[in-house]
Amino acid sequence: MYAKFFERSFLYAFGITLLCSIVGTLLGGLPYLTIIGALVISLILGMMFQINQPLVQKSKVGIGFISNKFLRLGIILLGFKLNLIDLAHAGVKTILFAMFIVSGVIFLTYNIARKFGVSKRLAILTASGTGICGAAAVMGISPQIKVSKDEEEAKHNDEVLAVAIVAILGTVFTLIEIAIKPLLHMSPTQFGVMAGGSLHEIAHAIATGGAGGSVSLSAAIITKLSRVLLLAPAALVIGIWYQKQEQVTDGAKGKLPIPWFMAGFLLASVIGTFIPMPASVLNALVKLAYIVLGMAMAALGMSVNFKAFISSGKNAVLAALSSSVILLIFAIVVSKSFF
C-alpha cells in the first residue's frame, strides 16, 4: 500500500518539479533574467505551486525524495563543469585567493549572523552560500546538517531562506559591480577576478564578467570555479564542525558525517577533465545537472513555510549584506594588487 502511495506521490512530484526546472532553465536564459539564474527561478516556481495545496499534499512524499536524492545527483553531475586543468593553469594565487575567500567569508558571515541572533543552522547555510557558490553551496552543505524528523520542515525553511538571501544579494551586487566598473580603472583580467571572487552565483559572475569582455569573462569563470572546487572540502569540514557543536549542546555522540556524494562531484570533475569525450556530451551532462538541481530547488519551494520564511530572515539578510560589502572591497583590493 505504501509503495503504491509513494509511487503515485513521486510521479506527481516528478512531473511538477521537472516542469518548474525546464521553465526555470528557459526563463533563466532570457537577457534580463540571467543574473537571477535558472535554479532560483525554479525555486520561485515551486513556491508558486503552493497555491494548489491539494496537489502539493498528494506530492508530499515525492517532494521529500526529490529535494534530497535529486539534490545529491545534481551536485555530482555539476562536477563535469569543473575542468581541473583550467584551474591549474589559473595559478596558485587564484586558488589561494579562492581559499581565503571561502574560509574567511564563511567564518565572517556565520559570526555576524550569530551576533544578530540568527539560528546556527540558518547562519551556516547563509554563510556557505555567500562564501562558496550561492544556491548550489547551500544545497551541497545542507545534507551535512543532520536534524530529527521533527526539525526537517524547519530545516527546509532555512534552506529556502538561505538560497533566497544569496540570490537577492548576488543580483544586487551584480548590478552594483557593473555600475561601478568605469570608476574602478581595472584591466579586464582584474575586473573578471573581482567578479568571480566577490559574487555568489556562477550566473552572477558570468553576467558581470561578460560586461568586461571575453578576457574578463574567462577570468571571472576561472576564479568562480576555483571557489566551487572548494565545495567538497568545505562540506566535510562544516559537517564535522556542526556535528561537534551539536554534541556539545546535547551530549549525544553521533557518526561524523562524510559527504560521499561530494566524492562523486570530484570524480565527475576528474572524468570530465582527463577522459576524452565530445564537448557536446560534457555540455549535455552539465545541462542535466542544472535540470536535476532545478527539480530539487522546485521541490524545496513547494515545501516552504512562508510564515517562518518571512519571520526569521531579516537578521540573516543583514549579516550576509555586511559580509558581502566586506568581500567586494577585499576582492577589489586583491584584484588590483596581485592580478
Score class of each variant (00 low, 15 high):
178 I>P: 03
178 I>A: 10
180 I>L: 11
183 L>H: 12
185 H>S: 14
187 S>C: 07
187 S>K: 10
189 T>I: 15
190 Q>A: 15
192 G>E: 06
192 G>V: 01
193 V>F: 09
195 A>K: 01
196 G>L: 01
199 L>H: 00
200 H>R: 00
201 E>I: 00
202 I>N: 00
202 I>R: 00
205 A>N: 02
207 A>G: 11
207 A>V: 15
207 A>P: 01
208 T>E: 13
208 T>I: 03
208 T>H: 06
209 G>E: 01
211 A>Q: 01
211 A>R: 00
211 A>F: 06
213 G>D: 05
215 V>G: 08
218 S>I: 09
218 S>Y: 07
220 A>Q: 03
221 I>H: 04
222 I>M: 09
224 K>H: 11
224 K>W: 06
225 L>W: 05
226 S>M: 13
227 R>C: 05
228 V>R: 06
229 L>I: 09
229 L>C: 01
234 A>F: 08
234 A>N: 01
235 A>M: 14
236 L>S: 05
237 V>I: 15
237 V>L: 15
239 G>Q: 08
239 G>D: 02
240 I>C: 03
240 I>K: 00
241 W>A: 14
243 Q>W: 10
245 Q>K: 14
245 Q>H: 14
246 E>L: 13
246 E>N: 13
246 E>F: 02
251 G>K: 14
254 G>M: 12
254 G>Y: 12
255 K>N: 15
257 P>R: 10
260 W>M: 13
260 W>T: 13
261 F>E: 06
262 M>D: 08
262 M>W: 09
266 L>V: 13
266 L>W: 05
266 L>Q: 08
269 S>K: 07
269 S>Q: 04
271 I>H: 08
272 G>P: 08
274 F>D: 08
276 P>Q: 12
278 P>M: 05
279 A>T: 15
281 V>S: 06
